[in-house]
């Protein structure tokens, strides 16, 4: 199975699995921090801005 299309799809499938596994941890940590920051910013808005 040395057909270039076979090699291409093999690379795509295995890279995708590795990429999804990596993102799981990376986004898990970074995204969690961003949610904290976002809720802090939203909670800290002055009352007038909240109502506008």
């Amino acid at each position: 199975m040395s057909n270039p299309f076979v090699i291409f799809w093999t690379v795509m499938v295995f890279t995708s699995i590795a990429w999804y596994a990596f993102l799981l941890f990376f986004i898990g940590v970074k995204g969690g921090k961003e949610i904290k920051e976002m809720t802090k910013t939203l909670a800290a808005r002055p009352e007038e801005e909240k109502k506008s």
Binding site: G31, E34, E37, M38, K51
Partner: peptide, 26 residues
């Protein structure tokens, strides 16, 4: 729980435009 931060349509529709990169990707 996030309901407490909704003050208007801008919050409701575009999250007060406070979204950052990694949360955006997720």
């Amino acid at each position: 729980w996030m309901r407490r931060f909704v003050r208007g349509v801008e919050d409701f529709a575009v999250a007060g435009r406070e979204m950052n990169v990694n949360l955006g990707i997720a």
